[in-house]
Amino acid sequence: MNRETGVALDLVEHITQSITDILTTRIGTRVMRREYGSLLPELVDQPFNDFTRLQAYAATVMALMRWDPRISLSRVQLLGATLAGQATLDLEGSIVDTNEPLSLSVPLRLGGSA
């Protein structure tokens, strides 16, 4: 179910929504599930260099391996990070149950909202 409209989602749309939620949730902010989320929001104020990009890739893979077992990732790429904390995360992999290829472009809005 779409968390904004209540409309039913297909599998790929639901996976996209789940990935966005996992990656943009700061660890420790969910009341009954303190470990849920990723370290990606912690990297917002870091300099955007190769080291931070590598940390972002690791944070993405670790969080998705733990919190969304429906997918298997083969490639992660962070694109277009701006000073406003907006970026696009390109993910490639497959859906575990069907072995169907999966290619997603997930917009990330981290930090304060404009």
Rank of each mutant, 00 (worst) to 15 (best):
V106H: 00
A58M: 06
M62I: 11
L102Y: 01
T82R: 00
M32I: 05
S38T: 05
M65R: 15
R33P: 02
G37P: 08
T98P: 15
V106Q: 03
R70I: 00
E92N: 10
Y57F: 11
L39F: 11
S103L: 09
P101H: 07
A59M: 02
P107A: 08
V31T: 05
Q86M: 08
S72I: 08
L39W: 09
D68A: 09
S38L: 07
T98V: 01
L78Y: 06
R70Y: 04
F48N: 12
L64R: 11
P47C: 07
A56Y: 03
T98E: 04
L89C: 04
L54G: 07
D50V: 10
R66D: 11
A58N: 14
V96P: 06
V44C: 09
I27R: 13
Q55P: 00
P47G: 06
L104I: 03
D68R: 14
Y57R: 13
T52S: 07
M32N: 12
I27F: 02
W67F: 12
L78Q: 04
P47R: 13
Q77D: 15
V61T: 07
P69H: 02
L102K: 08
A84F: 09
G28F: 02
R53S: 05
E92S: 13
T88W: 09
T88V: 15
L40G: 09
G37E: 08
R53H: 07
M62C: 09
L83M: 09
D97P: 09
G85M: 01
S72Y: 05
L64P: 08
A59R: 00
T52D: 02
D68S: 12
S94C: 10
G37A: 07
F51D: 14
G80L: 06
Y57T: 13
S74M: 03
P101N: 01
E92V: 03
T88K: 01
P107V: 00
E35Y: 12
D45L: 14
E42M: 08
R53L: 13
T98A: 02
M62D: 15
N99W: 10
